[in-house]
Write a protein that binds this DNA or RNA. Structure first.
Lengths: 348, 348
DNA sequence: GGGGCATACGTTACCGGTAACTTAACTCTT
DNA sequence: AAGAGTTAAGTTACCGGTAACGTATGCCCC
């Protein structure tokens, strides 16, 4: 199995159509017609060819077909920032499952939230002639944008809703989702509010949520008294220690908004561990509505987005476009604020 | 951007090496040499070619190179059961990140824990001439096994340690990990023990953990009084309601072993919600050691496996093999029992 | 009974690169 | 000054399929 002996092994066990045809005593064109069920051959010939296909274990080389330009590939390049964040794993699951039902494959790229990584990946994946690309985020480097335009293949930008996408876009309006949460928290009576998130080297959806959040809070008479942007990943433990940092530097904080549910959950655990009552002493709100919420006795105040559906929708739009259907270039899958019980809605 | 007009669009904006060469006034062989930095051309020529590469936005077509058989592809097919399970997402993250550092790409396949899905995916992905495959699990259909042998490419089987793998294997011994937990639970004094997991249509690692667990428990004088195998996914909520079912049908249960941490966490939440003291009234043990454990005040009794490292190791073994290095065909990355505080180790 | 027309093939060319070989123009020897 | 070696190219063939076209039968029907 190891390719120890390149010159011997490189072609040794790969059976080509030519070999099948020779074994069956027909031309490779006839064998090709049989395999593609194209007609123009006798039943006898079909049987002869299929016998050899089975006997030799022939597997077609799709590279050759695509390369020859007779059809496009069934690759869809999919870029995702990271899979440590459960929501992105769900998105990818939705994408790949849906693509699979159409006989397409995901070629994965983890871009670690950086445009340079994304650009490098785009360059590589385009060289494999994918049928289309699904990219997380609306921001791309100038070179990436140029390559995408030149590629002439469908592109779906997911996550951030993008009213003027490169091609197609599906997601939610993160500014609005932050805004709604800000308005909600102030409406139930919070004034001094903190934020705990992580910093990235580039504008992203979390930043837009924060922007929307701040605008709503300040517009409604509250104040975002402290914004903590950790140089860390947006998971449980940074939420935990970030909350400690926040409460040390701003002990008057009445409520904390987190970049996502994992961080919020870390914060919740920090607070209860310190003997603080949530939401009596402090309110906690996250974003994303993790599956773990389904078993929590205290429902986390959050914002629900169907990540699986988002992925599925992206894949569906891609497939529709590839089959020539008209596709709206911008699809909002919506979100739903979850009041939960980690903020106190009876402060008034 | 949409491929509306097939005959016009199919080739329209894809610049080939021939066009670059013509524009630069050289033969395509010379252009090829420049792009591969092969030498045998003047500095003047190099500049002329590179100018045209930039001007025309030329991207090489790797399909052609691989197809011509001059080098192997940089695709690695990666099959994963599902991404809803956080541990598999971590494995995939480890794989893809490591592959990325070598310039390789993952072609994903979500096999939903079924051998038939896996077989179908293997057939398809092999037609793309991947450089190698990384498969989750040691069980494959007969046809899949045959295709894998014929393919003549490296294969890494991950997750279950496999002493006689198809080619290479990396993972842990799940039987032993279940065995250790069984022995531990009996050693601290539990006798009537329950199990909550999910059922699959095929033998898998969770089944082996259960087998090891039962053997240890029974060998040490305890009893697995009830095994609940839900027809559901192995996540939080099934752990929650599965625990209810278990405790209704076997109220004498002193301790519950779960298929994984997500289910165990669901069970923990069910028990505390019902006013049961954990571990005072009932013990709870899981498997996998989820990241969320880092913020829990009560550490879940579990079994730690470095899933990210598992993925990285799999990718490293693949890369080592592809570069011709000798690779041990079986690598145990080990596990570590986490006593935690959801079982009572002072019952004696 | 010969022209028209399916049917069942075979032949050729091509996709975009690269290996292997060839060629033309220099440079350097002896 | 002729032969050898080097440099910078160009030419040809090939990978594994498929589109487009060519061709040899057999059959029917006026």
């Amino acid at each position: 199995m190891p390719p120890k002996n390149p010159e011997k092994n490189s072609k040794s066990n790969k059976v080509s159509l030519t070999e099948v045809a020779r074994a069956a005593g027909v031309s490779k064109m006839t064998a090709s017609r049989v395999l593609r069920d194209e007609g123009g051959y006798s039943e006898q010939t079909r049987i002869k060819v299929m016998e050899q296909v089975d006997a030799l274990g022939y597997l077609p080389n799709r590279l050759a077909t695509v390369f020859a330009g007779d059809q496009s590939s069934t690759f869809i390049g999919v870029s995702i920032p990271d899979l440590g964040n459960e929501v992105f794993a769900q998105v990818l699951e939705g994408i790949d499952r849906k693509l699979g039902t159409f006989g397409y494959q995901s070629v994965l790229g983890l871009t670690q939230h950086t445009l340079q990584e994304e650009e490098n990946w785009i360059r590589t994946v385009l060289s494999w002639q994918p049928a289309g690309l699904i990219l997380t985020g609306r921001y791309h480097s100038a070179r990436a944008t140029e390559m995408l335009r030149n590629a002439g293949i469908p592109v779906v930008e997911i996550w951030d809703l993008n009213s003027s996408p490169l091609d197609m876009s599906v997601g939610i309006n993160h500014f609005d989702s932050g805004f709604d949460m800000g308005r909600y928290l102030v409406s139930v009576g919070y004034r001094d509010i903190g934020y705990v998130g992580t910093s990235h080297d580039t504008a992203n959806a979390a930043t837009e949520r924060l922007n929307g959040f701040c605008k709503a809070v300040e517009g409604a008479g509250g104040a975002v008294i402290k914004q903590l942007c950790l140089h860390d990943t947006a998971t449980y433990y940074p939420g935990f220690y970030g909350t400690e940092q926040l409460l040390v530097s701003a002990p008057e904080t009445e409520c904390v908004y987190y970049q996502n549910d994992a961080m919020a959950f870390g914060g919740l655990q920090y607070c209860t561990g310190k003997g603080l009552d949530v939401p009596g002493d402090i309110g906690i709100a996250g974003w994303g509505d993790l599956p773990i919420a389904s078993v929590m006795s205290k429902r986390l105040t959050s914002c629900h987005v169907s990540h699986l559906k988002l992925g599925q929708k992206a894949a569906e739009m891609m497939m529709a476009r590839l089959s020539g259907e008209a596709v709206p270039n911008c699809t909002d899958i919506g979100f739903r604020l979850i009041p939960g019980s980690t903020v106190d809605n009876s402060r008034h």
